[in-house]
């Protein structure tokens, strides 16, 4: 029962979504199914938050390694939750001036917005910017001309790296537009980069995408037909 009911739900909803793509009358059924998932996923936030609090409280109480980070996590979590829910610093909207909580929670000047602008935004940007450093270390460590394929990869990388900046233009600007009756400017690095990206890379991406689409179709079918049940915790019913 514990696994049969989810399997029936998964199968039914899955087939409704497929059918709704082909039959106009059922188009809205697919939308309804999506709405239900969103409601469930929203409720599951509570589950996640509960687990987060439990895990970190346990770490603090056991004084496990790195418990200080847990304390910071919990403090940040509750601070953001409270200032967001209580709309601290939010002024009422013009439409409902008498209702103190009528303004949006992320209104400019509110405490939540302050957290967003001065903590969340720079921290997120920092994490993303770290990619530049990690790419540098990966380039230094992993890009080795070990065989012919690796040499082709390296050559392509050099061309694209240069072609994606002004360096490409600067280095190969001297190549004439036409030479011996051929469009010689196709050899300029920025143009070669375009050819690599729009021809070779595009063809490869298409092949990978088709393979992925088939994999998705096959895996989805397994789930819908109940052949694959491992995501429910068991291969047995």
């Amino acid at each position: 029962m514990k696994r049969t009911v989810p399997l029936i739900i998964a199968g039914t909803v899955g087939f409704v979504l497929i059918v709704s793509y082909f039959i106009p009358y059922t188009e809205s059924w697919g939308e309804d199914a999506m709405t239900w998932f969103n409601i469930l996923a929203a409720i599951a936030f509570v589950l996640g938050a509960g687990n987060l609090v439990k895990m970190h409280l346990k770490k603090i109480s056991d004084q496990q390694a790195g418990w200080g980070y847990s304390a910071i996590t919990l403090a940040a979590f509750f601070f953001t939750l409270i200032v967001g829910m209580l709309k601290i610093g939010v002024t009422p909207s013009e439409k409902y001036p008498t209702n103190a909580w009528a303004g949006p929670y992320d209104q400019a000047g509110s405490a939540f917005r302050w957290v967003y602008d001065y903590l969340f935004l720079p921290l997120s940007a920092t994490m993303f910017a770290m990619l530049a450093f990690y790419i540098a270390s990966a380039a230094f460590r992993a890009f080795r001309a070990k065989n012919v394929e690796a040499i082709a990869l390296l050559t392509t990388a050099f061309i694209v790296l240069l072609g994606r900046t002004y360096a490409g233009v600067w280095l190969t600007d001297w190549i004439p537009e036409e030479s011996i009756g051929l469009e010689a400017d196709a050899l300029r690095l920025d143009n070669v980069t375009g050819t690599i990206m729009n021809t070779f890379n595009l063809a490869g991406m298409r092949a990978i995408t088709i393979g992925i689409a088939l994999g998705v179709a096959s895996t989805s079918l397994k789930v819908l037909l109940g052949v694959d049940r491992s995501y429910l915790g068991s291969t047995d019913d």
Binding site: I135, A139, F140, F158, A167
Partner: peptide
């Protein structure tokens, strides 16, 4: 980008 190329060559 130029630094990356230099790093790959050094590596």
């Amino acid at each position: 980008h130029v630094t990356l190329i230099v790093l790959i060559i050094v590596g």
